[in-house]
Amino acid sequence: MSSANKDILVYVPDIPSDIADNDGEQMIQTRLQNTLSIKVKKVKCYSKLGVAVIQVTMEDHKTRLVSVVDSIVLDPHRSINISFVNKLELDSYIVYDRNASISKIPSSEKLVTHLKQAYKSIENLLCESITPQIPNIFHVTFNTLDNLVEVTNSSDFQLDGILATVYPCVNFSFLENLPRTTNDDKLRSAVITQNGDKELSATSLYIQYNKDTGDAVILVSKSAKTWLMKQSLIIDGQNIEKKTALTCRILVSPVPRGFNLDHIFNDSLFLNRVIGHNQVNDTLILELNNMETYKNVLAQKVIKIDNNSMKIKPYAIVIDPETMEIDAEN
């Protein structure tokens, strides 16, 4: 629905993806008119995006919906509520094939160029990797709803031979230090359980778990309100806090037995930048103070101290044979 200056528009950011557009439009119009006596000029649902646009006839009605009503029950039989906002957040995520080689994943600049060439109306697109630790997922902000609708209608595409999928208008969170018995299926089951056992479609939920690092990223539609209200995920009896950023950790090795770690901490590369550490055998795990430090340190690749050359690598779980627990999958 175009948003001309004269149009009085209210937005719904949390339409379930399993409601057909025509059904959603009729349900919204009927509920607003019958329960709130609000005359609706037009409703347009975009179930692929999980959003709807409502055109009302009076500014007072818009103010009432956004500032007073806030939300209503759309379908009492299925316990579906929708909310009203003044503006849509057009943040979306593009996920490349997780099995693609890191060196072959197209850059954010190449992704922007591709989208602009494929969809001529797109301008000033904002695009960046969500974090260097997960290089195959990009955060993209579109300028207009029309742009997002156009891209989402062809949600799967290839760039440089690598498959990519668009997840529009979703919320994302990170999980760290997950149990070693975790896998994608267990994570999906845990999310659905905490969402009140309400099933989520493949386009409404994306989970990417990295067993080597013990972390995961969760993309989920805004209709999953019960899950979004949770501050943590319960999995295998553990309470894992949801985060908006991953801890900046790197590995330094080999660190000789008995080596004075202060020599590493006081090196110009690490001075006043290390906020935590742990050593397992000859591998030193360092927690760094911010992402800029993380990038600079990894770019160094090797550090030499007292004739000892040590490699610097991205974080991965280091198993201590003396304290390790048996992995249920092995």
Rank of each mutant, 00 (worst) to 15 (best):
K313V: 00
N289L: 08
I326L: 13
D215L: 05
I305R: 09
L284N: 00
L271Q: 11
T293W: 00
N210A: 10
V302Y: 14
V255T: 04
M291S: 06
R257L: 12
Q300S: 08
Y294T: 03
D282P: 03
L261A: 07
G276E: 06
Y206G: 09
I317M: 11
D212H: 12
H263P: 01
N289D: 12
E322Y: 12
S232R: 10
K242Q: 04
Y315V: 00
N290C: 07
S268H: 10
L284P: 00
I285D: 05
A245N: 08
I275F: 09
D262T: 11
T203V: 14
N308G: 04
L298P: 01
Q238T: 11
Y209C: 05
V302L: 11
N266I: 03
L219R: 10
I234V: 15
G276A: 10
I305L: 14
K198Q: 12
T247W: 05
H277R: 11
K311Y: 05
I275D: 09
P314W: 09
M291K: 10
P256M: 13
E287C: 10
N281R: 11
M310L: 11
K230W: 05
S232P: 03
L286W: 00
Y209I: 03
L271C: 07
I218F: 09
A202E: 15
I235H: 01
L228W: 15
L288I: 04
L261F: 09
N210E: 06
E287N: 13
S268W: 03
A245F: 10
D236T: 04
I319M: 04
L228H: 13
I326V: 14
E241S: 15
R257V: 06
I235F: 09
